[in-house]
Design a protein around this nucleic acid. Structure first.
Lengths: 197, 197
DNA sequence: GAAGACACTTGATACTGTCAAGTGTCCCTC
DNA sequence: GAGGGACACTTGACAGTATCAAGTGTCTTC
């Protein structure tokens, strides 16, 4: 909680590393030597190896929740599209965080109520949107299904772009933003709306 | 390629381990001692640590491609739903494989043309379906957008169920299969169709 | 029966996370 | 201003890891 220069340095370096190489090869010791401190110094700020992943996930969910707030748009579909776009762009701009956030082996949500509540807040932003759009007469099951569908679409697109073979396949797409919106429109509006290029 | 008892034993053990604990802590040495051989024996079959991940991904994409073939259904929407269902069920039934297949740090597609072509075959099954349903007058852009949307929805749902916080959230859902179909119907048909429970 | 490929074993090295104990340095209290 | 402790580290040691490099047996083939 208390800000510390070393903690911040190490955290930044770790996020950068994960964004480039993934979390697997991340070395605590290397982070330490890069920061010019002894191999145990980072350990003091993040109890163990999992601690730094917990910190990264926490930071990520906080930022994601913020990114999904205050969505504006004329129609429900517009707002849903903005939500999708924000989600995917967050993932692309914060690969280091995103790669950690949804990896249950790295950050075990169940054992960390604080992290869980932050993650819930991000999901809550989505549920709120769905609830507002479906109206008060919507059943819980309806809301749950729609929220899951939207989340799945956004999450799938994001992960396929980051870790999957999709980036290569749609590499030729000139305007990525337009492509993301087209994919969203395809599903949210139930009718094709391909990009112009 | 040539079948080997040890290779098979180690591969099975690795897949099982990854399904339970994820790929990060997978120890080649532990696999070796578990199989009752020296620490270098598995290394002989999978050139290095990445080799076993490559093998797992290859196996996984082959099985996924097979699972997505020969989809039948009355309407286009039916077939799309079956496709979604098969994708998600493959992921849930083969967590060990699925966790590896879409992790670019573990198996680098670009450097392995063989693996890439197997993965392309799986994606091809999806594209074929979209192409057949949209008809011959469909543009490449249209096909690409629709295929990406379907893939994203399926992939997002699968990964959120496996590695994400979704399993906990929809834990109360009585019939998981019905829930998956409802999520698909929500998107594919553009209208809500919540499960009965 | 020699040659060589194959499936391993054995040994060593450098790296890793983590435990345990030390060192200095600040701040607060008596 | 002396003492005590919390804090931010350092130092040293240990077990476990992937990987390199060389060995050993066994089986097949010519």
């Amino acid at each position: 909680m208390a800000p510390s220069a070393l903690r911040e340095t190490v955290l930044r370096a770790a996020v950068d590393y994960i964004a480039d190489h993934g979390p697997d090869g991340l070395s605590f010791r290397q982070l330490a030597t890069d920061a010019g401190v002894s191999h145990q110094a980072p350990y003091h700020h993040f109890v163990d190896r999992k601690g730094i992943f917990r910190a990264i996930a926490s930071e990520g969910f906080t930022q994601l929740a913020a990114a999904l707030r205050d969505v504006e748009g004329e129609t429900e579909a517009d707002r849903a599209l903005v939500l999708l776009e924000r989600y995917v762009e967050f993932a692309l701009d914060n690969r280091g965080h995103f790669r950690v956030m949804f990896r249950s082996e790295l950050c075990v949500m169940e054992s960390d109520p604080a992290l869980q509540s932050i993650a819930d807040e991000a999901f809550g932003a989505l549920v709120d949107h769905v609830q507002a759009d479906l109206g008060p007469q919507a059943s819980l099951a309806e809301i749950r299904v729609r929220a899951t569908a939207m989340w799945s679409l956004a999450h799938g697109l994001a992960t396929l772009l980051i870790d999957g073979p999709l980036e290569v396949k749609i590499g030729e797409v000139a305007d990525r933003r337009a492509f993301i919106r087209a994919v969203g429109a395809q599903m949210m509006l139930g009718q094709p709306k391909p990009p112009e290029n």
